[in-house]
Write a protein that binds this DNA or RNA. Structure first.
Length: 387
DNA sequence: CATCGTATCT
DNA sequence: TAGATACGAT
């Protein structure tokens, strides 16, 4: 069963310890990953650059002799945009947080177990899903089986286990590249509504900062974002909001220093910013160890997923430390906005991707089930041989 | 013209 | 509220 999970995932493993590389490689074979190992960061970089799109994810040791792994991490997550997992014997909190802040999607404390590797495909799946989410456009809700037209999105009332899902997927696969064809004829281009996920926003912010304090125009930002489907208008609109947010932040700061004493702030509920934990520069979106991420992929309760234990994923909506934010927004509420909820929106492009990556129907369904837990998913694969 | 910034709409 | 759209300015 485990083999199905990892089908077609290509992973690059980087570590100075050849023995470990061999061990990992072996386990990767066992779970059917396509794996390439190298013992130097520079080699890894070269491999990634040489031919892009040749790997789906990277697993790298945090302390490498020849080059700073974190630099590598930042580069890969930002420029190449594939998930990077870090691993190290050092599991101290600061180190882990640094890794996560720099973009690592997980952190494994050595010694590793087979389970970690067995489950690492999930990071790729997650990434794909998030990307899909960013491009989401909510057009008219259609019946699943009726009138599918190019470029439209479908509101799949995900009936899990419903054999129709298979049909839908296959049907949609036929029409590919709906964003490539610029059919002029009378097509009233549907404007996509972009959801600025935290990830996307962080990317945005880092680009704005890098592009310098000054006028980072929508055009330039867009160019560096390199996100298919994203338009200048999208960026412009977001930039406007972001600037507003920055302004509010400043005035707030002033008010704050003015009233040094008598804090007494019960966050008057009103105008405290909720602009989605905006400010990717601070650390407060990182939460302590053993926090279970709630904002993504709800897994069926018994889904094998021990790897997250060591991870320190992000929960955007978790109150930030510096002030008790508008507390009333419960995390549970956020669940609905974030996950697939009851009605899931899935677009054809995403289905294509999903289908390509997980040709096995069962795996796809598991992936979908991931967002739509159902009581009858049973998994009990557990093996933990130390490497 | 293209792009940007702001106001306004949904 | 977040994101899209309209529109005048540069």
């Amino acid at each position: 069963m485990a083999q199905q999970f990892s089908t077609h995932i290509r992973v690059l493993v980087v570590d100075h310890d050849i023995n470990l590389l061999n061990a990992i490689e072996k386990v990767c074979y066992k779970f059917n990953y396509t794996v390439k190992t190298c013992s130097k960061v520079s080699d890894a970089l070269y491999l990634l650059m040489e031919k892009n799109n040749s790997f789906d994810m990277v697993l790298i040791e945090a302390k490498m002799p020849d080059m700073d792994s974190y630099e590598f991490l930042r580069h890969v997550t930002q420029q190449i945009n594939i998930p990077v997992l870090m691993m190290c014997v050092d599991g101290s909190r600061s180190v882990v947080m640094k890794a996560i802040n720099d973009g690592a999607c997980d952190y494994w404390i050595k010694p590793l177990t087979e389970d970690l590797i067995m489950n690492m495909w999930q990071h790729v799946a997650r990434k794909i899903w998030k990307q899909n989410k960013n491009l989401e456009l909510m057009s008219e809700k259609l019946e699943v089986e009726v009138g599918m037209k190019k470029g439209e999105r479908y509101d799949l009332k995900l009936p899990l286990n419903d054999p129709k899902i298979e049909g839908v997927i296959n049907t949609n696969v036929k029409e590919e590249s709906f964003e490539k064809n610029n059919d002029k004829p009378e097509s009233s281009a549907k404007k996509t509504r972009v959801t600025w996920s935290l990830e996307l926003h962080k990317k945005f912010v880092s680009i704005v900062k890098e592009l310098n304090v000054d006028k980072a125009g929508p055009k330039k930002i867009l160019a560096r974002m390199n996100e298919p489907g994203l338009t200048r208008e999208h960026v412009a609109s977001h930039l406007q909001k972001y600037r507003l947010y920055l302004k509010r932040g400043e005035t707030k700061k002033q008010n704050k220093t003015a009233e040094a004493t008598t804090e007494s702030k019960i966050s008057n509920g009103s105008s405290e910013f909720d602009f989605q934990a905006y400010d990717a520069s601070t650390d407060h979106h990182v939460v302590p160890n053993n926090f279970i991420p709630t904002n993504f992929p709800h897994q069926p309760n018994n889904f094998p997923h021990e790897s997250i234990v060591n991870a320190v994923p992000v929960n955007v909506y978790q109150a930030d430390s510096e002030e008790e934010t508008s507390s009333s927004t419960s995390i549970n509420q956020q669940h609905n906005c974030n996950g697939f909820g009851t009605n899931s929106i899935i677009n054809p492009a995403f289905i294509n991707t999903l289908n390509a990556r997980f040709p096995n129907a069962q795996v796809r369904n598991i992936f979908l089930a991931w967002h739509h837990p159902s009581p009858n998913s049973n998994d009990s694969t557990t093996s933990s041989n130390d490497l």
